[in-house]
Protein backbone atom coordinates (compact mmCIF):
# COMPACT_ATOMS: atom_id res chain seq x y z
CA UNK A 1 0.00 0.00 0.00
CA UNK A 2 1.46 3.34 -1.09
CA UNK A 3 2.00 5.81 1.76
CA UNK A 4 1.24 9.50 1.41
CA UNK A 5 4.35 11.59 0.79
CA UNK A 6 3.01 14.60 -1.08
CA UNK A 7 -0.06 16.75 -1.60
CA UNK A 8 -0.66 14.81 -4.83
CA UNK A 9 -0.77 11.56 -2.83
CA UNK A 10 -3.17 13.22 -0.40
CA UNK A 11 -5.59 14.15 -3.20
CA UNK A 12 -5.15 10.67 -4.67
CA UNK A 13 -6.19 9.22 -1.32
CA UNK A 14 -9.54 11.02 -1.64
CA UNK A 15 -10.02 9.86 -5.25
CA UNK A 16 -9.12 6.26 -4.41
CA UNK A 17 -11.27 6.40 -1.28
CA UNK A 18 -14.34 7.49 -3.23
CA UNK A 19 -13.67 4.97 -6.01
CA UNK A 20 -13.46 2.07 -3.58
CA UNK A 21 -16.50 2.94 -1.51
CA UNK A 22 -18.52 -0.08 -0.43
CA UNK A 23 -20.86 0.56 2.50
CA UNK A 24 -20.12 4.29 2.19
CA UNK A 25 -21.68 4.60 -1.29
CA UNK A 26 -25.33 4.87 -0.20
CA UNK A 27 -24.22 7.35 2.46
CA UNK A 28 -22.65 9.65 -0.11
CA UNK A 29 -25.76 9.39 -2.28
CA UNK A 30 -27.87 10.37 0.74
CA UNK A 31 -25.52 13.27 1.56
CA UNK A 32 -25.63 14.62 -2.01
CA UNK A 33 -29.41 14.24 -2.36
CA UNK A 34 -29.87 15.85 1.05
CA UNK A 35 -27.63 18.81 0.21
CA UNK A 36 -29.41 19.25 -3.14
CA UNK A 37 -32.82 19.28 -1.47
CA UNK A 38 -31.59 21.66 1.23
CA UNK A 39 -29.79 24.22 -0.89
CA UNK A 40 -31.43 23.94 -4.32
CA UNK A 41 -35.03 23.44 -3.21
CA UNK A 42 -35.68 24.35 0.42
CA UNK A 43 -33.38 27.38 0.62
CA UNK A 44 -34.40 28.77 -2.76
CA UNK A 45 -38.15 28.15 -2.75
CA UNK A 46 -39.16 27.81 0.89
CA UNK A 47 -36.59 29.68 2.97
CA UNK A 48 -35.69 33.00 1.38
CA UNK A 49 -34.09 35.41 3.82
CA UNK A 50 -37.12 37.43 4.96
CA UNK A 51 -35.31 40.78 5.18
CA UNK A 52 -33.00 40.36 2.19
CA UNK A 53 -35.93 39.48 -0.04
CA UNK A 54 -37.78 42.68 0.89
CA UNK A 55 -35.09 45.31 1.42
CA UNK A 56 -31.86 46.28 -0.27
CA UNK A 57 -29.99 48.26 2.36
CA UNK A 58 -29.24 47.83 6.05
CA UNK A 59 -30.90 51.18 6.69
CA UNK A 60 -34.20 49.95 5.22
CA UNK A 61 -33.94 46.74 7.22
CA UNK A 62 -33.28 48.51 10.51
CA UNK A 63 -36.16 50.90 9.84
CA UNK A 64 -38.49 47.99 9.19
CA UNK A 65 -37.36 46.15 12.35
CA UNK A 66 -37.67 49.36 14.35
CA UNK A 67 -41.28 49.73 13.17
CA UNK A 68 -42.01 46.07 13.90
CA UNK A 69 -40.57 46.23 17.39
CA UNK A 70 -42.27 49.47 18.39
CA UNK A 71 -45.85 48.45 17.54
CA UNK A 72 -46.92 48.03 21.15
CA UNK A 73 -49.46 49.47 23.57
CA UNK A 74 -48.43 52.42 25.73
CA UNK A 75 -47.79 52.21 29.48
CA UNK A 76 -50.80 51.28 31.57
CA UNK A 77 -49.85 52.05 35.13
CA UNK A 78 -47.02 54.41 35.99
CA UNK A 79 -47.36 53.66 39.73
CA UNK A 80 -45.78 50.25 39.16
CA UNK A 81 -42.58 52.02 38.11
CA UNK A 82 -42.08 53.23 41.65
CA UNK A 83 -41.14 49.73 42.78
CA UNK A 84 -37.41 49.31 43.13
CA UNK A 85 -35.38 46.48 41.63
Amino acid sequence: MKKINSFHDFIYMYIEGFKNLTWGKPLWIIILVKLFIMFAILKVFFFPNFLNSRFDTDEEKSEYISKELTKTPIINDKNLLNESD
Partner: peptide, 13 residues
Protein backbone atom coordinates in the same frame (compact mmCIF):
# COMPACT_ATOMS: atom_id res chain seq x y z
CA UNK B 1 -32.44 28.83 7.26
CA UNK B 2 -35.26 29.09 9.77
CA UNK B 3 -33.56 31.95 11.61
CA UNK B 4 -33.40 33.99 8.38
CA UNK B 5 -36.94 33.20 7.23
CA UNK B 6 -39.12 32.63 10.28
CA UNK B 7 -37.21 34.60 12.92
CA UNK B 8 -36.03 37.65 11.00
CA UNK B 9 -36.70 40.17 13.81
CA UNK B 10 -34.58 38.02 16.09
CA UNK B 11 -31.85 37.54 13.47
CA UNK B 12 -31.54 41.27 12.92
CA UNK B 13 -31.83 42.17 16.60
Amino acid sequence: FEFGTNWSNYSWF
